Simulated scan of single mutants.
Amino acid sequence: MSARRMAGVTLVELVIAIVILSVALAGLVAAFARATRASTDPVVTRQMVAIAESMMEEVLLKPYAPAAGGSTRTDYNDIWDFNAYPADSPVTDIGGGGFNGLERYTVTVTVEALAAGGVTGIAAAGDAARIRVTVRHGAGSFTLTGWRTRP
């Protein structure tokens, strides 16, 4: 064979190279698409945690002892009033105003009396309370649990 014939790339070799490169590029695009879809999940989880922590802080800042309170969230004056908080309520501020971007999240708060047996000074039922805040978004949920004792 002559040196001139050996110095180039044939059309068949070029087509095969293009096919191999396009398959590799398609694989990379699929991997990036999957990574992009998966990266939104941590954002939703972090938002659910932030909502639950905010609601838990609101509950824990109220006094333990039951007092005559109102039926609206602005009138809640002890932790036990939060049992009247409607299940799967939309995320709102204390006055009932909504937040842009949080329309798909819901909150449930439960407060239950329990005896914390084995803990010094807490023996009778009603000397402690377990507070659960559950935030839901689509099929996902996050539950934050806190405890409060009688002072």
Rank of each mutant, 00 (worst) to 15 (best):
T72P: 00
P63E: 07
V59Q: 04
P63N: 09
K62A: 11
A50I: 07
S71D: 14
D78Y: 01
N77E: 03
Y64N: 12
D81N: 07
F82V: 04
N83E: 04
A52Y: 14
Y76I: 00
I51W: 04
R73H: 03
P66D: 08
W80P: 01
I51A: 07
A52T: 12
M55H: 09
T72G: 10
A52S: 11
L60P: 01
Y64H: 08
A50G: 10
E53R: 13
N83L: 04
A67M: 09
L61I: 00
W80Y: 07
P66R: 13
G70Y: 12
P66T: 12
I51N: 04
V49I: 15
G70V: 03
T72H: 05
D78R: 03
F82M: 06
D75N: 14
T74Q: 08
F82D: 06
E58N: 13
I51H: 03
E53H: 10
Y76T: 02
D75M: 06
Y64M: 09
I79C: 06
V49Q: 15
E57I: 03
E58D: 14
A68P: 14
S54K: 10
L61Q: 09
G70R: 11
N83A: 03
A65F: 07
A67V: 11
K62L: 10
E57H: 14
N77M: 02
E57N: 15
E58A: 14
M56C: 07
N83F: 01
I51D: 05
S54P: 05
T74E: 07
S54V: 03
A67Q: 12
A50F: 08
K62S: 04
G69I: 02
A52W: 14
D75K: 08
G69P: 08
M55D: 11
A65M: 10
S54Y: 02
A67R: 12
A52R: 10
A50K: 08
D78S: 04
D75I: 02
P63I: 03
V49M: 13
Y76V: 01
S71I: 09
